[in-house]
């Protein structure tokens, strides 16, 4: 169990980097062990905390946010919330219409209803088919801006949000998440011919574009303080309203590199063959389906659907939309419940 968890958490890290982190953390734990033991935690939990990419430094009470979801078997899957949706006859899902390959609308679609399509949309359809039943018009998609995802759930404008939404501790306080369905991390995107190699010295004096109020900006801020990002990198006043606007700036030569999460970076790369992902993701994030806090039956139900979807459906959808720009996948992220 412990070994599997470690392996999962180590995914995406350079072997050497992980070793160094583990060594350093082991040393810290050795020093802290007598103190933390008084809280009654056992050693296993501590090891788990230690590998959670330093999150414990900023939010000591919340670790591994992707592992906080309810197990499908932990209770009712057909409670008040699910009943209400079934009675209504359709599911309302908040989605993105601008993320190529995740959730977007093909402007040249011949069909009258010009449906949305992408990896997120496939999953949304799957959830609707399983909850409401496979029939036409069993789902209504509502395009919501990034910063409206949480309010839309809280105000019950949507039943859930399937919109490249990262599970994190702050959001867990406001909404409930399903188990993770996709793993990604902040990544650097730059023209293939540029000398930029990732989050390192090659970004010195470069103009880096990020979306306003995004995790990308926060992670760059942190990386600059860590020294991972040269102080001469220019990103503070280069934010744009939407991550896709960064590709516009990049193409127009108004920015040298873009930082966004790997999935969206891949979505951008898919729209421009001359840009590519540079270096490895430098954070570890998971996408989850967001639902209203307290709608436990719906969360369990969605988690059940995800269990099946991971076995059948996930890979087909990945290969269809993402394999081209993200490469072969080793499969969906591992799942662990609260």
């Amino acid at each position: 169990m412990n070994a599997r968890r470690l392996r999962a958490s180590l995914r995406g890290w350079g072997g050497v980097g992980a070793m160094a982190v583990v060594c350093a953390l082991a040393a810290v734990f050795a020093l802290l062990l007598p103190v933390t033991q008084s809280r009654g935690n056992d050693a296993e939990d501590l090891a788990g905390q230690g590998t959670a990419t330093g999150d414990q430094i900023r939010a000591p009470k919340c670790t591994d946010p992707e592992k906080q979801s309810l197990s499908p078997s932990s209770g009712d899957q057909d409670g008040k919330t699910v009943q209400k949706i079934k009675k209504r006859g359709y599911l309302i899902i908040g989605v993105d219409q601008n993320s190529y390959r995740f959730g977007y609308r093909d402007p040249n679609s011949e069909s009258d209803d010009a449906e949305l399509e992408g990896f997120d949309i496939d999953l949304a359809h799957e959830i609707a088919d399983k909850i409401v039943g496979a029939k036409p018009n069993n789902v209504r998609f509502r395009a919501i801006p990034t910063d409206q995802r949480i309010p839309a759930i809280q105000d019950e404008k949507v039943d859930m949000v399937v919109r490249t939404m990262t599970i994190n501790c702050d959001r867990l306080k406001q909404v409930a998440f399903s188990s993770p369905y996709f793993e990604t991390g902040q990544q650097v995107l730059a023209p293939k011919k540029s000398g930029i190699t990732g989050l390192d010295k090659s970004l010195a004096k470069k103009r880096i574009c990020t979306a306003k109020g995004s995790t990308a900006w926060d992670s760059l801020d942190a990386a600059e303080k860590d020294g991972a990002l040269p102080a001469s990198a220019d990103f503070r006043d280069r934010t744009v309203p939407n991550q896709l606007d960064c590709l516009v700036r990049l193409q127009l030569g108004e920015a040298d590199a873009v930082v966004t999460d790997g999935a969206l970076a891949a979505s951008q790369a898919a729209q421009d063959p001359t840009v590519g992902l540079k270096g490895e993701p430098f954070t570890d994030e998971f996408y989850g389906v967001a639902m209203k806090k307290g709608a436990d039956d719906l969360v369990r139900r969605v988690n059940q659907i995800l269990v099946d979807y991971r076995k059948d459906g996930w890979r087909t959808s990945y290969d269809k939309w993402l394999a081209e720009s993200l490469g072969e996948s080793s499969g969906p992220p591992p799942v662990q419940y609260k």
Partner: peptide, 20 residues
């Protein structure tokens, strides 16, 4: 024109160009 070209390809990037 860039917005149009991207829209023709079916890329959401076209919309971003049009907003710009």
């Amino acid at each position: 024109e860039r917005a149009r070209a991207n829209n023709r390809q079916g890329y959401p990037l076209g919309g971003a160009y049009l907003r710009y």
